[in-house]
Write a protein that binds this DNA or RNA. Structure first.
Lengths: 343, 343
DNA sequence: ATTGCGCCTGCAATCGATTACATCAAGGTT
DNA sequence: AACCTTGATGTAATCGATTGCAGGCGCAAT
């Protein structure tokens, strides 16, 4: 009793109309007479008709999907952004196609494959670090769908983007530490070539210079946003003859690695050293000590990026100017920061 | 200078062959003469030809995509499973289409839409809690693609599944606490109707009964896997006149909420109470104290589910028996558990 | 009664790739 | 020389929905 899926023509036959009318009744109901619409909908209901997306997309010259490039799907930081994107896209009846660029970086061919317009109607990149060859093909080819960078971005300003105010966030963090009396402040940064690292570093240095706090090379720790790099930084801190009394970490993950490793050496936060993170991931408020950090509007980054992309899709060919949206961040003061030791 | 994307016929013209030959040269190279193949590939390269997936899928009667249903995209626990799935799927040249069922639960129509075979060639559900109406339509309709449950599953054994040994994990946790001398053990469980809650609860109770440890109603705490519910449980624990000396939490998140809230009341883990978690999420090893927990093979759950689904896609119509794969878990002993107080 | 206008509907082309079947050439067999 | 086999290629139908265009109908204005 194998039964093929009903097609539009089956519905048409039952409703006693042509396929054209069925199509219109379903997608542009106001263009059909009331009575026909009712009988078509009834017939569709009766047969359990579902449109064949491949056929529709072929005819309409679109794909019905948006590709989201994620640097590392395993990183919880991105999942909430994804959630934000998904909400917006499903509302617009677009599918969200997720690609882990960590996997795909090895194969740039595969990547440009995804960026081609037979694959997706648009692209949201959470990864600012796309290979140049890929970026070039996106910019030059008219076969590439619109692209929006979210969270991270590229040096090239011709790509639209949504980002958090990373520089401002770093300034807030430093100002907070300064207000607590700290004058020996260290910075644990992300990967050197990363745009977020640079923005946060710039903001932090600006604030320190502006606040009369020395920027010392021996207080600069190199990390890569991961827990482990926070652990490494803790060892570096421990090895210093003259230690900073506060450390601004460019990610919460690194802050956790840093604090936990210090704890193992009996160093207590914030008593011996104050720590500020960046991101405000879920667990931050429930770490011990609860982490003082800069909150990024993660869901907001996702929804804004999706909205921006939808606008560009709706706009007539090349109609919209390149847009850069910056979302505010917020300093969340908790228990990992305290007054500088008076000594 | 608007230029349309090249089509197969453009390649054919340049190579001086028919579209049929181009198609064959690209997808079944061995059926085409060496020389033709070379000139076709050259022509494809020259024009920058990419197949139109809508057209291919229409003709081949498939969609080239797998839908993954995620209960809550914002939850980091799922992101690593997604990563595992993505690796497998991209290897098979299938797209991964992610849907947040938390969003979609409100609209069951939308959900069954996704489960229909014009949308996807297969389904991986990380959500065992699909509405009955949806499940029924999946089971009954022959328009539904194969489905595999990963991580969570349904009461109905007719659906294939991949799961961690939740019962065994819970037994390990209890055995560990017993070995440390605990005889007053509490359980902080997940949402009551959840299959994971039941499996872990069963395992824990079994182990306690088998080990001669009383299962006391006043030591049962209700949670829902979230941080906040761990916090609530901490209050419940504090309110008890007679308190368990160890608590087995059905998720790491709850364990963190529990421990952090106790810490705010000056109760120390593991000195005053031992805590075991479940999942071993990234931060677990770097919490303070580092969390003793049951490790689930998250990436493994994803890759196994994807592999199982791919097998079913490759198999001839209804050729494969329903399969249930159980992956081992592992107890990771860290610092949140210690000997029971001798008093 | 004629004309004109709007509203609804149907006809048929179209989107681009795949593939069953037909064709054709070359080489081997008897 | 007639016939068969094998391998390579072309022809054309096909997947299912959408949509430009044209036609038909009813109603109102002249």
């Amino acid at each position: 009793m194998e039964m093929r899926a009903p097609r539009i023509i089956d519905v048409a036959r039952i409703a006693g109309v042509s396929t054209a009318t069925v199509s219109r009744a379903l997608s542009k109901p106001e263009t059909v007479a009331e009575t026909t619409r009712i009988s078509v909908l009834a017939a569709a209901e009766q047969t359990g008709y579902r449109v064949n997306h491949a056929a529709r997309n072929l005819r309409r010259q679109r794909t019905g999907a948006i590709v989201v490039l994620v640097p590392n799907l395993g990183n919880p930081f991105f999942s909430e952004i994804l959630a934000g994107i998904e909400v917006m896209l499903s509302r617009a009846d677009l599918n969200m196609l997720v690609v882990d660029t960590g996997q795909a970086h090895a194969k740039p061919d595969l990547m440009s494959e995804y960026l081609h317009n037979t694959r997706a109607d648009g692209i949201i990149a959470l990864d600012g670090w796309l290979p140049d060859s890929v970026l070039a093909s996106v910019r030059d080819s008219n076969a590439s769908p619109p692209i929006v960078f979210a969270c991270e971005w590229t040096a090239d300003p011709s790509f639209a983007s949504v980002r958090a105010d990373n520089e401002g966030g770093a300034r807030l963090a430093i100002a907070h530490l300064k207000a607590l009396g700290h004058s020996k402040i260290g910075i644990l940064s992300g990967p050197p070539d990363n745009v977020l690292t640079m923005a946060r570093g710039t903001g932090a240095r600006d604030a320190m210079l502006g606040g009369g706090i020395p920027v010392r090379d021996d207080f600069m720790f190199d990390g890569d946003f991961t827990l482990d790099s926070g652990v490494m930084a803790a060892h570096a801190w421990l090895d210093l003859p003259d230690r900073p009394t506060a450390v601004f970490c460019a990610s919460d993950q690194m802050a956790f690695g840093f604090i936990s490793e210090l704890a193992r050496s009996g160093i207590s936060v914030p008593r011996s050293v104050s720590v500020v993170g960046f991101d405000d991931i879920d667990i931050a408020g429930r770490y011990i000590p609860a982490l003082t950090t800069v909150r990024q509007p993660r869901a907001g980054l996702g929804t804004s990026a999706a909205r921006m992309l939808l606008d560009r899709l709706a706009a007539p060919e090349g109609g919209l100017p390149t847009e850069h949206l910056m979302l505010d961040v917020e300093l969340i003061v908790r228990d990992s920061t305290g007054a500088a030791p008076s000594g």
